[in-house]
Simulated assay, not measured.
Amino acid sequence: MATVKICGIRAPETARELNRLQLPIDHVGFLFAPSKRQVTPRQAGELIALLRGDGGAAAGPLAVGVFVEPTEELLRETLAEAPLDVLQLHGNETPAFCRQVRETFGLAVFKVVSVASGGEPEADPLEAVEPYRGAVDAILLDTHDPLLGGTGRTFAWERIPAYAAWAADAGVKLLVAGGLRPDNVDELLREYRPDGVDVSSGVETDGHKDIAKIKQFVERVKR
């Protein structure tokens, strides 16, 4: 069964309601890079506490910190206030950097790979991901955009199998983001069977996380 990551949580009331509902959400993402969904390390720490409630660190979804080309110092400062479980790197971080931070902090590392939409030239997927073999725990495919995701646009899904084959051979997970919604995630899972899916704007209404849409999305992935 595919894992679910809800990205861009920033409102305490959203965290409280997700804790109350106890939905089978596997990961919750917090954006520390410039974005309309950006939070501070202290805010993220407070949100993680609300998500986990009285259960402490063992309860609730894993906390994912989303960064763009962070320094080790920034990661250390962030982790001092936000108990993250996963570091998601969304920029041009090198395989050496990914390996180094994974070893330094003892946390899983997800590396984001941008995939062109159908009208753009197709790059060789192996060229993009092969250097990360042995350096990361998961590859997350997202729609190519100069901004930090959350565009609401899908990429060309027919490009997924090449990445999936590489991920299986490399022993890492393959996650898919980019324009996912409750009404299209069924098709993605049925046709391409990634290890997990990541959603942000697709479960929002007027720029705010919509609990009803989150419930619908999670139910469609987990059923």
Rank of each mutant, 00 (worst) to 15 (best):
A2N: 06
I6T: 02
G8Y: 09
P12F: 11
P12V: 05
T14A: 11
E17R: 14
E17G: 01
E17H: 10
L23C: 11
P24R: 04
D26F: 04
F30K: 03
L31Q: 10
L31N: 11
F32N: 06
F32P: 05
S35F: 06
K36Q: 15
V39W: 09
R42D: 14
Q43T: 07
Q43E: 14
A44D: 11
E46T: 02
E46R: 10
I48S: 03
G53Y: 10
G56E: 14
A57H: 12
A57L: 13
G60C: 01
G60H: 02
P61F: 09
A63Y: 11
A63G: 03
A63Q: 05
V64R: 00
E72N: 07
E72G: 11
L74V: 06
L74D: 10
L75R: 04
E77D: 12
T78E: 03
A80E: 15
A82R: 10
P83E: 09
P83Y: 12
V86Y: 12
Q88W: 08
Q88Y: 06
H90K: 05
H90P: 04
G91W: 10
E93V: 04
P95A: 05
A96W: 06
F97G: 11
C98W: 11
V101P: 05
E103H: 12
T104Q: 15
G106A: 10
L107Y: 09
A108I: 07
A108K: 15
F110H: 14
V113Q: 03
S114T: 08
V115D: 08
A116S: 15
A116V: 08
A116G: 15
A116F: 08
E120R: 13
A128V: 06
V129I: 11
E130H: 11
G134K: 09
V136P: 04
V136T: 13
D137E: 14
D137I: 07
A138C: 08
A138Q: 07
L141A: 02
L141C: 04
L141G: 01
T143R: 15
P146N: 07
G150A: 05
T151I: 00
T151R: 04
T154K: 13
T154E: 14
F155K: 08
A156I: 10
R159H: 14
Y163W: 05
Y163S: 02
A167D: 04
A167W: 04
A167T: 03
A170D: 14
G171E: 14
G171V: 09
V172W: 11
L174M: 01
L175Q: 03
L175H: 04
A177F: 05
L180Y: 02
R181Y: 05
V185K: 01
L188H: 09
L189H: 12
R190A: 14
R190D: 15
R190Q: 15
R193C: 09
R193P: 02
R193D: 15
G196Y: 00
V197D: 01
V199I: 10
S201G: 15
G202W: 00
G202R: 00
V203G: 00
E204F: 00
H208M: 12
H208V: 13
K209Y: 12
K209F: 07
K209N: 09
D210I: 00
K213P: 04
I214H: 00
Q216G: 01
V218E: 00
V221N: 00
R223P: 12
